[in-house]
Design a protein around this nucleic acid. Structure first.
Lengths: 197, 197
DNA sequence: GTTTTTGTACTGACCAGTCAGTTTAGAAGT
DNA sequence: ACTTCTAAACTGACTGGTCAGTACAAAAAC
């Protein structure tokens, strides 16, 4: 199963992911060339096409991989917690994820609200999966009375997701010196306020 | 000054701005070709280069123009108001602007947190100008005691700017059916909460 | 008669994707 | 063990197309 071949190949794909995510976060998908990605990953261009069908597919698989990790973090964070605590745990999980995968978060923020791109459908779907975890928590809170009954679940969930993203990335890009605890506190405050509207 | 020639030229530039902003909001700067922009504006390619030095300069002037309007709206909104009301007025102004110049807002959201692009310096500068208006209001509020003294002016101002942008664009892209008053209410609630931290 | 726009044709750089050939891991034969 | 064989993994020069920017003569607007 994990013989030398598969491990080697998995390693190559991982290096390509890392190279691609960094370059695309900095420059965007279109401005990033396959040659750049190959060079940064330390492989030949042909290797990119041996491992991925096309530049677009590479990016789609990258999105799937990255958001998959985020969704898993979300699920782990809320497991077994009552609604209000689960909501706070989600905020902490999102921030922790963004700190760990800074470049991916930056990339998401830049590409999330685009329209008319080939991979846009994929991204929408994946965004939906991540937000669904938040939505389940919000829904449970509304049902149990822990959260206000008139809260629009879908809107609140996507707003929560987006606000976390923008505040954290803004912090990473423009205020990297500020301690993360402040950011987390500000975000938790925001969430608490929205949950009472 | 505003003779026929200048007005005609100004009109051409305006049409090019509109075409460029829509295409770049949808696809990004790199994926948008000068031929596309000219075609959408209903103008020959040569006209683009008669009116602008290069594709990059066109984009930079577009950014200057768009953020200039936003900054002017901000200044008009806060004129003569006490800090807390001024803050609410800023939120309303930002939302109104985003509704009017939807594509530009989408473009800003996508390009704001990029690094390593030629025009990135320009964008940072302009972002600073817009945020400075917010910062003046926040600073005045802190000085007069209307806002908490321990509020970090720079951070609060940029967070306010970013949150408004992401919530509004998310609304435009994913929930266009939802009434804008809801969005405005949610935002005002958020701002009130942050102002008390 | 001067400024602005048009239309078309062109150049040179760049870039996604291909492919014939090379290297490598490890299975099979002795 | 140790050679031989094979398929998987990787390489990098090459191709065909795309696109920013140029050139310029003729037309339209003022």
């Amino acid at each position: 199963m994990t013989d030398g071949r598969t491990r080697r190949r998995e390693d190559t794909r991982q290096r390509l992911f890392v190279a691609a995510v960094e370059l695309i976060a900095e420059q965007g998908f279109s401005a990033t060339t396959v040659d750049d990605i190959a060079a940064r990953a330390g492989v030949a261009k042909g290797t990119v096409y041996y491992n991925f069908e096309s530049k677009t597919v590479l990016f789609e698989e990258l999105l799937r991989h990255g958001i998959g990790l985020l969704t898993a973090d979300f699920r782990a964070a809320v497991a077994g917690l009552p609604p209000r605590e689960a909501l706070a745990a989600l905020v902490r999980a999102e921030l922790g994820y963004i700190r760990r995968y800074r470049a991916f978060a930056q990339l998401l923020l830049s590409e999330m609200w685009r329209t008319n791109r080939e991979w846009q459908q994929t991204l929408r779907l994946l965004r939906g999966e991540a937000i669904e975890v938040i939505a389940e928590t919000v829904r449970a809170g509304v049902a149990s009375g822990d959260l206000p009954a008139d809260l629009d679940v879908r809107t609140a969930s996507s707003a929560l997701f987006g606000v976390g993203l923008v505040v954290a990335v803004d912090w990473l890009v423009f205020q990297p010196d500020r301690p993360i605890e402040d950011v987390q506190e500000a975000l938790l405050g925001i969430v608490r306020r929205v949950a009472q509207t």
